[in-house]
Every structure is written in structure tokens, then in C-alpha cells.
Design a protein around this nucleic acid. Structure first.
Length: 591
RNA sequence: GCGGUCUUAGUCCAGCUUGGUUAGGACAUCAGGUUCCCAACCUGACGACCCGGGUUCAAAUCCCGGAGACCGCACCA
């Protein structure tokens, strides 16, 4: 298939061609067109909705069915507290300044980093007034025209609303689905029968109020995100499924290369990447391998995929090691389709702290461990007379104190100071005590693969797009084709149409996504079907009436085989399960 | 937000410079005819000047404002 692009006016790239095709055939289009449209919002049409569902189901097949990961669904509107706790309210906004002369806008933190040598981390903590002061002190002016700046302003990229009619309670449209999983951790953990490791995936809408989203499906204000949070014990980080992906090759672009502006890709097998310390976490490596498989299954060849390691300042606030999976696109070059972050126990830790709810798990040892631990025991009989009503409090403080510190202080000074109380050695007993430890308490760590469903969808379209004999053919992999089978009577007379309708009905009942078309010449219908990406065409001809056979046409090769009508459901089932190839569907018809 | 280009039927375009009858074409779609396997052909149908204001006897066309799209800059936690 050629690399050219079919478009009424040349030159034109694949992005334009696909957007045009998508509008014409009902894959997707810009929302709210009758009111002039709204940037960053799309509507999926009949073909697109199905394709998107098929891609998401492919993702489910790989990540849910094969790994036993659990699926959940939570709400888009989220109480402010959640995103305050997660750090999004602080991190999802950018201090922006505008030049008084040329009106250009800049991120104040970037300016401070570049011209005043103030680190990103520091700049993020500054208030707007501090930002303004820092800009002035360091004499930072507009990099373009040297003009001064207006007062800095925050731009929050989360959509904000209020919850309830009178309430001043702020709500945010979630910018990711992950927090919806973290906040429900305790219930999910018990649903997983309190066993680690376990993973939870959520596929749903997310909102980000992008400043100017102008890349079609690549950057939307409302989009579908697939967040998978995989919880594991940091002391047992091994992945029991690793064997299945060990030999999978990951094309990687690593930090050291990137810092030298080098784009060289190094190929590592999953095993090598782990052994050489390129990827720190086994589970992260596992999910990256699965992500590569997913993209391969939706039609992207391996050489058009890569993983790039995020540089320290590119990483999200929660992440310890991050990779982006990128796919090479015609117009936009290497484009992120998934992110792979090691979130450690950051999120659960934040929600524990902010909500006061425990999200600590307990893991029982195979055998309880008996140890002797130094403990501080307050002697209340002695504390009482000295501290009177404070005695209880002093006792509590002593019980919490570190035994070694207390012991050392008593040895050295003869007393121990705790919050202004002077404790003498007779008021406390420090002695080793037998303790039986039955297990360990800890906050699980998380690795997170996160996919943009709309980008996967666009990628599938772009890689399916091809031209054959001046016609557009959407060569989707057979497992995601929006329509599996088209049924066509060669003529719409002599009973062919009735026979074809019968076959359509039978195949639909057998569970296939099937479409019937009798309008126009047969060639025209094939062309229509190719453009919609219909995998197979079943044509009912005069031989069908006498022999009970039909021809099956392959969308990509345009070859045809003849097979018996009654064998169709079983044959097609095997074909779409990829157990047999097209040639196995019947005897080849010579053209 | 800035600069450039642009907005006419389902899709892609012509018309605008120089205002004037019924806004033209191609493809798609629908109905009918024809046709024994790859967008054939014939007949017919459907369907549009981005929105608001102004100038004018008269605006798709000129002027002002707005919205939207694309490209570049900036932005993309």
C-alpha cells in the first residue's frame, strides 16, 4: 500500500485526510458545530464509537482479562479536597506573566528558572507576590522584546465548579482517573480480598482546560483516559507475569541520550532493561511491554514505537521514574500515547494525611517473628505525685519516645526533657520486652500505565489509512474493525437480496457486527466498505441460489474465496479469533 | 493570547478583485433504470454563502465587530 494521501486538494497530510474522512464517514468530528464549534471537544459518530469501543476492549483484553486486574468506574466531578490532597490544585496551575509591550505570555516559573537560576521546585512554592518580587529583583524582562510584565496570574488547568446549589464547596472536573481509584483504595483492596499485588483500571472521561487545544484528537479538553493503578509491596517488587514478556523488545530513548540532544534508540529486551537498571520496577517493565503489544495490535509496527524516559524536570510531581510511550505520526512526529509512571506511595500517602483515613495494609509473615525490643514504660506511681494532672500526658509522651534517646539522656544528664517536662530516671523504666510481630504494616507502592483513548483511536486511524488504486482503504487490524462483515447481493433482484438478508440475519444472530448494502454497483459498495474499514465482504451471487455458497472478499488484498453458507458462522469466528487466515476461509476465486 | 492564512451543501472546491437574473462544479447520499464481482452509465431528487452590525436601491462579494479552523510562536501539570 502506498504512502500517498488521498485528499481533494493536494498537498495534504494524513491528519487532514483523516479528519476529512472522519467527518464524511462518521468516525468523529468537532462538537457543537451548529453553534460555531468549541475547541477541544469532539463527537464520535457510529463508526468511530465502535472503533473506540473495540480499541478499549482490546486494552481490557490485554490488561484486564490476561492479568486479572479489576475494573472500576468513579465520578468525573470530584470534591476539591481530593485534588488539594493529591497536589493537583498546587501543581495543575501555572503562574503566567504577560508582557506589557508585546502581550506575549510566559510561564513565570520557567523565566525564573532560566534567568534568575531559581529552581522549578522553589518557584512552584512561591506565592504570586513572591514570583513578582523575584522577577523584579532579578531584572527579568520579556525575552522577546525586553518589556516589563503585568502582575503574574495563575492559570488553573482543571475545570472548576461548585457542588450543590448554595454550597461554596469547590468541585473539579478530574484531570485524570487515577485519584478516583486511590480514594477508594480501602474498598477496592477488600474487594480484591486484601491481597497484594493487585491492580485497578478505570476507563472514563477526564477534563483538562487546555489553554489552546488545536491538534484534533491529539489534545482535547474532554477526553477518555485509561488509568491503571497497580498496587504492590515495595519489599516484594517482583512481577510474577514477567516471564510472558521477558523477550519483548522495548525501543528506548534514555535520559543520558536525551540530555545530549541525541535521538538514538537503544533496543532492550524487558529482561535486559531490568538487569541493566534501565527500568527500575519489574511491574513497570511488564506494563510497558504490554503497552507495546497493545499498540502493535491496533496496527502500529514496532519500529514506529518508542519509550522515552522523562527528564527529572519533566516528570509529574508524584513520579519517581517515568516513561512515555510514543508513536510516530505523520504530522506531529513522535506523539505520546501512554505514560508509565512509578508513583511510589505518594498518592495513598497524601490521601491518608489529608483524610485521616488509614490506607495501610498488613501483610502477615509466614511465621510470626519474636523479638526483644527496648521499650519505655512510664512509672505512673512516681509520675503522679510530681506532675499531678499532667502526669497522663507525660506518660503518653514517654511511651512514644525513642527508647534509645531516653536511655542515653538519662545516662548522660540523669534526666530526660520532653515538651518542657523534666523526667527523672526513677519515673521511667527502660527494659527489653518480648514482642511478637505477626506481619508488616505499609503503604503499597504504585506503578501506573495511563493511556489516552482518543489518541489510541487516532493512531489506529492513521496507521489503518492507505491508498489502493486511488481508493482509500482503512486497513484496521481485524480485531478492531468497526464492522466485521458486509453482506451484499450482487444484484438487487432475482431473489439475491432476500438470500443476502437471510445471511445478514444469521450472522448478526451469531454475534457478528454485520452490515447490509444493496445500493449501487457492487464495486461501489466494496469501495464504500473499504473506506469504512469493513473487514470482509460477503457477496451473494447467482451461484449462491443453486449451490448455497457465497464469495468472501478481503478488504486489504481484494482477493475472494468461495465457501458454503452454512459454514460461515464457524469460519468467521475462527477468522476473527485469528485462528485461521483469509485463505483458509474457502477456495480462492480467480479474478 | 499574539502573528499569518482561512470559513460557500454530507465532503472538497469555484465565484469575491470590479456589489446586480435562479450562487456553479466534482464527489457523496437518496429514488428509479441498467449491470453476473471492484467508485461504469442514464434519469431525477436532496442540499450551502460562519454569526452580528453597517454602507447601498441592491451584499457571498465592500467596511466594522465577533466566533471557529489551520500554520508559526507560546502553552501542554
Amino acid at each position: 500500500m502506498s504512502d500517498e494521501v488521498k485528499c481533494d486538494k493536494s498537498p495534504c497530510d494524513k491528519f487532514t485526510a483523516i479528519n476529512e474522512l472522519a467527518r464524511r464517514r462518521g468516525f468523529f468530528w468537532n462538537s457543537y458545530e451548529i453553534y460555531g464549534g468549541a475547541g477541544g471537544f469532539v463527537a464520535y459518530g457510529p463508526l468511530g464509537t465502535r472503533l473506540k469501543q473495540n480499541i478499549e476492549n482490546k486494552l481490557r483484553e490485554l490488561f484486564v482479562k490476561q492479568t486479572g486486574i479489576l475494573e472500576m468506574e468513579s465520578s468525573v466531578i470530584t470534591p476539591g479536597k481530593v485534588f488539594e490532597a493529591s497536589g493537583h490544585v498546587d501543581h495543575f496551575k501555572e503562574p503566567m506573566v504577560e508582557c506589557v509591550k508585546c502581550n506575549r505570555r510566559f510561564r513565570a516559573d520557567h523565566l525564573l528558572e532560566e534567568y534568575a537560576k531559581i529552581s522549578c521546585v522553589q518557584a512552584e512554592k512561591m506565592t504570586l507576590k513572591e514570583v513578582q518580587a523575584a522577577l523584579e529583583e532579578n531584572g527579568v524582562t520579556c525575552p522577546d522584546c525586553g518589556g516589563g510584565f503585568r502582575a503574574p496570574q495563575q492559570f488553573l488547568t482543571m475545570f472548576t465548579t461548585t457542588i450543590g446549589p448554595y454550597s461554596g464547596a469547590t468541585g473539579y472536573g478530574r484531570p485524570e482517573a487515577a485519584q478516583g481509584i486511590f480514594v477508594e483504595f480501602n474498598r477496592l483492596y477488600s474487594a480484591a480480598r486484601e491481597k497484594l499485588p493487585f491492580g485497578v483500571i478505570q476507563i472514563g472521561h477526564a477534563l483538562r482546560n487546555e489553554i489552546s487545544p488545536r491538534q484534533g484528537l491529539i489534545r482535547l479538553r474532554e477526553f477518555t483516559i485509561c488509568d491503571l493503578e497497580f498496587f504492590f509491596d515495595p519489599e516484594e517488587p517482583s512481577c510474577h507475569l514477567l516471564k510472558e514478556v521477558e523477550t519483548e523488545v522495548l525501543p528506548m530513548l534514555l535520559c543520558d541520550k536525551r540530555e545530549k540532544d541525541c535521538e538514538d534508540i537503544t533496543n532492550f529486551t524487558v529482561r535486559e532493561a531490568l538487569d541493566k537498571g534501565v527500568i527500575h520496577s519489574e511491574w513497570q517493565a511488564f506494563f510497558m511491554a504490554m503497552a507495546k503489544r497493545l499498540l502493535t495490535e491496533i496496527g502500529v509496527p514496532a519500529e514506529k514505537q518508542r519509550f522515552i524516559e522523562k527528564l527529572p524536570w519533566e516528570k509529574a510531581h508524584y513520579s519517581s521514574q517515568s516513561f512515555d510511550q510514543e508513536v510516530l505520526l505523520d504530522r506531529y512526529g513522535w506523539t505520546e500515547v501512554s505514560g508509565h509512571a512509578h508513583r511510589t506511595n505518594f498518592d495513598l500517602g497524601c490521601h491518608m494525611k489529608a483524610s485521616g483515613t488509614d490506607m495501610i495494609v498488613f501483610k502477615e509473615y509466614p511465621n510470626p517473628v519474636e523479638t526483644e525490643q527496648l521499650t519505655v514504660k512510664p512509672v505512673l506511681a512516681k509520675l503522679g505525685p510530681v506532675f499531678k494532672k499532667d502526669a497522663g500526658k507525660v506518660g503518653e509522651l514517654l511511651a512514644k519516645a525513642d527508647p534509645k534517646t531516653v536511655e542515653a539522656a538519662l545516662k548522660k544528664d540523669g534526666f530526660f526533657m520532653v515538651e518542657g517536662f523534666k523526667v527523672l530516671s526513677e519515673q521511667v523504666q527502660i527494659a527489653p520486652q518480648k514482642v511478637v510481630v505477626r506481619g508488616r504494616h505499609f503503604v503499597p507502592h504504585v506503578v501506573e500505565p495511563s493511556f489516552g483513548s482518543d489518541r489510541l483511536f487516532y493512531v489506529a486511524l492513521e496507521y489503518a489509512y492507505g491508498i489502493k488504486e486511488d481508493r482509500v482503504v482503512m486497513s484496521f487490524p481485524r480485531s478492531i474493525a468497526p464492522v466485521q462483515v458486509g453482506v451484499y447481493p450482487l444484484m438487487s433482484k432475482d431473489g439475491l437480496a432476500e438470500k443476502a438478508q437471510e445471511i445478514r440475519k444469521r450472522l448478526a444472530e451469531a454475534g457478528f457486527m454485520v452490515e447490509y448494502d444493496e445500493a449501487g454497483s457492487i464495486g461501489r459498495r466494496y469501495a464504500r466498505a473499504d473506506e469504512a474499514g469493513i473487514q470482509l465482504g460477503i457477496t451473494v451471487d447467482y451461484e449462491s441460489l443453486t449451490q448455497d455458497t457465497v464469495t468472501i472478499r478481503d478488504r486489504d488484498s481484494w482477493q475472494q474465496v468461495r465457501s458454503e453458507i452454512k459454514a460461515l458462522p464457524e469460519l468467521l469466528y475462527s477468522y476473527f479469533q485469528r485462528k485461521i487466515n483469509f485463505e483458509d476461509l474457502g477456495t480462492l476465486v480467480k479474478c
